[in-house]
Every structure is written in C-alpha cells, then in structure tokens.
Amino acid sequence: MPYRWTVQTPTARRLELWPHRSLPRRGFAAFILGTFTLITIPLYPLLGTFVLWGILPFMLLAVGGIWWALERSYRDGEILEVLTLDPETIHLSRSAHKVAQKEWQANSYWVRAEMHQTGGPVPYYVTLKGNGRTVEIGAFLSEEERRSLYGELASALSETRAAHGPDG
C-alpha cells in the first residue's frame, strides 16, 4: 500500500500517503535503454548511408520524448500527504511539486472521516470533516486503497475519541 502508519507516542499516530509508482527508477532506466536498443535495430542496414542521418534525429527525438514524458510523470507524482493524529489535534499537510504546501488542523475529537461512494472526483472519495472545513485525503490512491484507508482512518479517529473525550 502506498501509505504507512507509524506510532510516534502511545497516543499519537502519523500517516504518510504517496502515489503508487508502477515503474520504479531502475525500471525507468531499463525501459529507456531497451527502447533505444530496439529503435536502433532498423538503422543497422543503413549504416554508412545518407538515409541514416535523415532518420536518426527523428528516432532520437522519439526516445527523448519518451524520456521527457516519463520524467514529467515522476515530477507530477511527487505528492506527499502527512496526517498527524494525537488526542488534542489532527493535522494534515499536503506537499506537491511546484505547488504551495496546504495545511489543515482541527480538534481530533470532532473530526469525522467520510467516504463518498459517488459524487466525488473519484469513486469512494475519502474526506475529513472538522473545524468548519472538509478536506480530501488520498484521492490519488486506487479505489481499493481508499476503501482500506477509510476503514483504518475511521478506526483511528474513534480510538482517539474513546480514549480522550471532547475535552482531551
């Protein structure tokens, strides 16, 4: 799962969420190398001809375009959401590439996790509601991961409420 719970203290937890990467960096390098190798095979019979110089720039441009697109995908996927849950407060921060960090904070006792099966930007959209605001969490996760996250999040919030009451 592209999220991880960690226990900071006996009463505080931290949740980190990030987008899933189906192509790790090592696979990225292998893919580019494989693409370059396969795309040059048709050029071997053209070695020593002027036709090679006419086709080669376009093949290199194609490999460069693939590299740029995958690299852009990596940069756009540099999202990290961090939820800190303790008896007094819940704090959510979201940082992404070239986007100002967003933060939200509320009293842990009054926060509710909600799952919207339809009507959100994605099916089974998970939000946190508290302090007069509703914020999304884990929208980049898969549908199954969002369902699992909702259950774990609701459980963590109810444990916090049960242990500490409305006044902490």
Rank of each mutant, 00 (worst) to 15 (best):
A100D: 14
T9C: 12
A162N: 04
A100H: 11
V99E: 12
G27C: 05
Y125I: 04
H20R: 13
P2C: 13
N107I: 14
A154Q: 14
A113D: 04
T40V: 12
E71N: 14
L92F: 02
F28S: 05
F31T: 14
H164R: 04
L43D: 01
R112L: 08
V63Y: 05
D167P: 00
A29T: 02
A100I: 05
W53D: 05
E88A: 09
E88N: 14
S95K: 09
P19S: 07
T37G: 14
Y125N: 13
F58N: 08
S22W: 14
A100R: 12
S142I: 00
L38F: 13
T127Y: 08
L23P: 04
L61V: 00
A163V: 01
R4S: 05
T127R: 14
K129R: 06
S142E: 12
S73Y: 03
L157N: 04
E145A: 11
G65E: 02
L38S: 06
Y150G: 03
A106C: 11
W104L: 02
A62I: 01
P123D: 11
T40N: 09
F58K: 08
A62P: 00
L85M: 06
F140Y: 15
R13T: 06
L33T: 01
F140Q: 12
E143K: 14
L43T: 01
R112H: 12
G120H: 04
K98A: 12
M1Y: 12
E71L: 15
W5Q: 09
G151M: 03
L46D: 01
A113W: 07
G119T: 03
T134R: 13
G119V: 05
H20A: 09
G64P: 00
H116I: 08
T40Y: 06
G119Q: 06
S73L: 02
S73C: 01
L153Q: 05
F58A: 04
I90G: 00
V122W: 14
W67Q: 02
K129Q: 04
F140P: 10
S93P: 08
G48L: 07
L149F: 02
Y124Q: 13
V99F: 03
W104F: 14
G64C: 03
S148H: 12
R146V: 01
T160I: 10
G27Y: 00
Y44M: 03
E78A: 10
R25G: 07
E159F: 04
Q117Y: 06
E71W: 15
P19T: 04
R4Q: 13
V63H: 07
E81I: 01
L61S: 11
Y3E: 00
F58H: 07
Y3P: 01
M115C: 07
M59F: 11
V135L: 06
Y124R: 07
E152I: 03
W67Y: 12
S108R: 07
R14D: 02
T89M: 11
L141H: 01
L61E: 02
I90A: 07
F50H: 09
Y74I: 06
Y74R: 13
S158M: 13
D76G: 05
T84L: 08
R112P: 03
L149K: 07
S22V: 02
E144S: 08
R146N: 13
L56K: 07
L38P: 01
G65T: 06
V126S: 15
G54S: 11
Y150D: 03
S95F: 00
S142F: 11
R75Q: 11
W67H: 09
T6S: 12
A113R: 05
E16G: 00
V51F: 13
